[in-house]
Simulated assay, not measured.
Amino acid sequence: MKKLADYKNRKRKSRPIIEVVPMVFDNNQATHRLVLHHVKRVIHKHSDELEKLAK
């Protein structure tokens, strides 16, 4: 699997600058679901790298 560092992009497209909207995380069920969803997604996506680091 190639990593982002393996790519050399010489023809970069200019992208519009967008404003980042801050989010406030509370200690409630909605925040818990949101964080768990994204953590599971990242773990699944990078599971092979995480297994190599664990060895």
Rank of each mutant, 00 (worst) to 15 (best):
K55T: 14
L36V: 14
T31K: 02
D48W: 04
R15K: 08
K13I: 04
R10F: 15
R15M: 07
I18W: 09
I18V: 11
R12I: 11
V24E: 11
K2M: 10
V20R: 15
M23L: 15
D48Y: 01
K55S: 08
Q29K: 08
D6A: 01
I17L: 06
Q29L: 08
I17C: 05
M1D: 13
P16Y: 02
V35T: 02
R33M: 09
I18C: 11
V42F: 15
V35S: 01
K13P: 04
R10W: 15
D6R: 01
K8H: 05
E51G: 05
V20L: 13
R33N: 14
K52S: 05
V35F: 03
K40M: 07
E19S: 08
K2A: 11
D26H: 15
H46W: 04
K2Q: 12
V20G: 07
M1E: 13
L4V: 14
L50N: 01
H46G: 05
L50M: 04
I18H: 10
D26S: 13
V35M: 01
V20F: 13
F25T: 01
D26N: 13
V20D: 12
K13H: 09
T31G: 02
V35D: 00
K45P: 00
K40Y: 07
H32K: 15
I43T: 03
S14F: 09
K8A: 02
K11H: 11
V42I: 13
E51S: 07
L53Q: 05
E19T: 08
H37Y: 14
K40L: 09
K55I: 14
L34M: 14
D48H: 02
R15L: 12
K52F: 03
R10Y: 14
P16A: 08
K52V: 01
L4E: 04
K11Q: 13
H46Q: 04
Q29T: 09
R15H: 06
S47V: 05
Q29A: 08
L4A: 07
P22D: 00
Y7G: 10
